[in-house]
């Protein structure tokens, strides 16, 4: 465990002392902020419009959770994760192989599980950091707005569950990124393959829904897109948690076999 943590700590040190992660996070927040701003602006325009035309029943349906936070998290942040996380994870194993520093890991008493676990832990910590950044948007809303009828402007249990959902999707993207990083020495190739794989699991739902019968149901279920909505809407779904955990477990297993294979073949 200590070895695993040492590997994770070293990766995090590299993440936090080189500009790549910061640039990626800055771009991530820039895009997310622009979408956040457009949703908030739209919200304000809608409420003004409904006030002017005296449509109180529509006004009453306006809330930050449904109109800003959920569409931001489900519609955009998760898509950004799909593209950003392979960029963050691409160096984890590919770079070790290219610069042959992997020989250090292979010639010291470190098991492949410790390598994979440490690398993944560092990636998951980055996901956690990016998820934490997403907390700023509901905080801004909490400061700027107010609720009707005594309660706050936001349903925080839904917001926090949404963040958990973001984290789970991010953790899944990171696991795929780590796996693709283990199959090649070329970081760019690793990132591109990672994005392709994730994109495939994203669009799989569309394919599955077009098909009838068991195949359609299986494909729909296998798609990441099928499982990202519950949390953002405020439902804790054990099934979705199991889905993401299974996805991560499978990716980490395959990554482990790739690392282990260096010793075998």
């Amino acid at each position: 465990m200590r070895t695993l943590l040492a590997i994770a700590r070293k990766e995090l040190k590299v993440y936090f002392t080189t500009p790549t992660a910061y640039v990626v996070c800055a771009l991530f927040t820039l895009v997310a902020s622009v979408f956040f701003w457009s949703f908030l602006k739209r919200f304000m325009l809608d409420s003004q419009l409904f006030l002017e035309v005296q449509r109180p029943e529509l006004l009453e349906q306006l809330n930050f959770n449904d109109r800003v936070i959920t569409p931001l998290y489900v519609g955009y942040v998760q898509i950004i994760f799909l593209f950003v996380l392979p960029l963050l994870t691409m160096r984890l194993l590919a770079e070790e192989r290219r610069t042959r520093t992997v020989e250090l890991l292979l010639s010291t008493p470190v098991s492949p599980w410790q390598i994979v676990g440490g690398k993944y832990l560092s990636a998951v910590t980055m996901v956690l950091a990016m998820t934490a950044i997403c907390l700023i948007y509901p905080l801004l809303l909490e400061l700027a707005g107010h609720g009707v009828g005594g309660s706050g402007p936001l349903d925080w249990s839904t917001v926090l569950l949404g963040l958990l959902g973001l984290f789970l999707v991010g953790a899944t993207c990171a696991a795929v990124g780590l796996l693709t990083s283990s199959i090649t020495e070329n970081q760019i190739v690793a990132a591109v393959i990672g994005m392709m794989v994730l994109l495939f699991f994203w669009v799989l739902r569309g394919v599955g829904e077009g098909l009838e019968g068991t195949l359609g149901a299986v494909l729909t279920y296998a798609s990441i897109l099928t499982h990202i909505e519950s949390y953002a809407r405020g439902i804790f779904s054990l099934g979705d948690l199991i889905y993401f955990a299974s996805f991560v477990a499978l990716c980490l297993f395959l990554t482990h076999r790739m690392v282990e294979s260096m010793r075998w073949a």
Partner: peptide
């Protein structure tokens, strides 16, 4: 097998931990 983004000391500490 050196990581260019670590200092020499950090590199030594890392390997000691490994």
């Amino acid at each position: 097998p050196l990581y260019p983004d670590l200092t020499a000391l950090e590199q030594l500490q890392f390997v000691a931990a490994l």
